[in-house]
Structure formats: C-alpha cells, structure tokens
Amino acid sequence: MINVLFVCLGNICRSPMAEAVFKNLVEKENLNEKIQVDSAATSSWHIGDPPHKGTISKLKEYNISTEGMVGRQLEKTDYEKFDYIIGMDASNVTNIREILGQPDHPKIIRFLDLTDHKKDVPDPYYTGDFQETYDLVIEGCQALLNSIKSNHEDQFN
C-alpha cells in the first residue's frame, strides 16, 4: 500500500481538496487497494472541522465527495505512516519538516514541484479563488499519480 498525505495550514481548503481529488482519481483508475490518501494541517485551528464551504461547493461542481472528511493536525507518527507527504506551499513544507523533525527528506515535497508550475498553491481561504486552486490541484494530483505509478511500477502490474 502506498500512503499519500496532503498538508496545508488549516486542513480545510487546499489539502482536503487535494485529498478528495486524488481519491477520486485513484478510484477512477481502480487503485483503491494500492493507494491510500489522507490530509492534515500544520496548525491546530480547524481540528475536527469539515472542509471549508468553498472547497465543498467547488468539489460538488465536479461530483467529488468530501464525505467524512474532518480537519486534523500533522503528527510526528505521520512520517512513518506515509510514503509521500505533500505540502501545498513552501511554508507548509518548512513547517512539515520542522514538525516531523526531518529537515530534508525526499518524501516531503511541495505539491506543484511535480508540475511545470513549480510554485505554491494559493490559499483560497485568503484569495477566495477556489477555481484557481481546483485547477492547480487537478494538475498536481494527475502529476502525482503518474509519478507514483512510474516510481512503483512493480506494484501496478
């Protein structure tokens, strides 16, 4: 099983959006038995909260479920549980490395570094632009899935 964790500041906008989109892609490719997905926050602000209403609304437009998703905070034990720990922006990556005590491990990456954009995913909590975030998340999730399938070919044949 390959375990993927998406991380942002509050775990109500970007990382749950990425979790839901990635789960949707994994299901469409019938890879549920091979890839497990979760999301978390670097802060404790929204522990137990559902995704932001803007995230829920945007995902509903594309028939992507957020059912059962609630905010949680990144924990030290996540380092051992997850094969990929994806920060939605550079600040998230810095905080992830600090929280996990792993200053430079290759399993911790910035999400859009997997794409040609090589930039941060803007936080729609502040920008209000959930469509821009969704478009970048779709692109990043597809790039991540392609990378996982390429890096773990033996598990997908």
Results as ranks from 00 to 15, higher is better:
136 L>E: 06
16 P>W: 03
143 A>Y: 08
135 D>V: 08
102 Q>P: 06
45 W>E: 10
155 Q>H: 05
6 F>I: 07
97 R>Y: 06
78 D>F: 12
143 A>F: 05
14 R>C: 10
150 S>M: 11
40 A>P: 14
103 P>D: 14
47 I>C: 03
38 D>S: 14
4 V>W: 01
45 W>Q: 04
134 Y>K: 05
98 E>P: 01
42 T>E: 07
112 L>S: 05
75 E>A: 13
62 Y>W: 08
16 P>Q: 05
111 F>R: 08
144 L>H: 12
154 D>Y: 10
138 I>V: 15
72 R>N: 08
88 M>T: 14
115 T>C: 02
150 S>E: 14
81 K>P: 09
8 C>T: 01
54 G>Q: 09
10 G>F: 05
7 V>G: 11
46 H>W: 00
89 D>K: 01
62 Y>S: 14
124 P>T: 09
107 K>T: 12
107 K>A: 09
22 F>Q: 01
133 T>N: 10
96 I>R: 11
71 G>E: 09
86 I>T: 09
39 S>L: 09
134 Y>N: 12
35 I>V: 11
20 A>K: 02
46 H>D: 08
42 T>M: 09
108 I>C: 03
40 A>Y: 03
154 D>F: 15
58 K>C: 15
49 D>W: 00
93 V>W: 01
38 D>P: 05
91 S>C: 01
108 I>L: 00
126 Y>E: 07
5 L>D: 10
44 S>A: 13
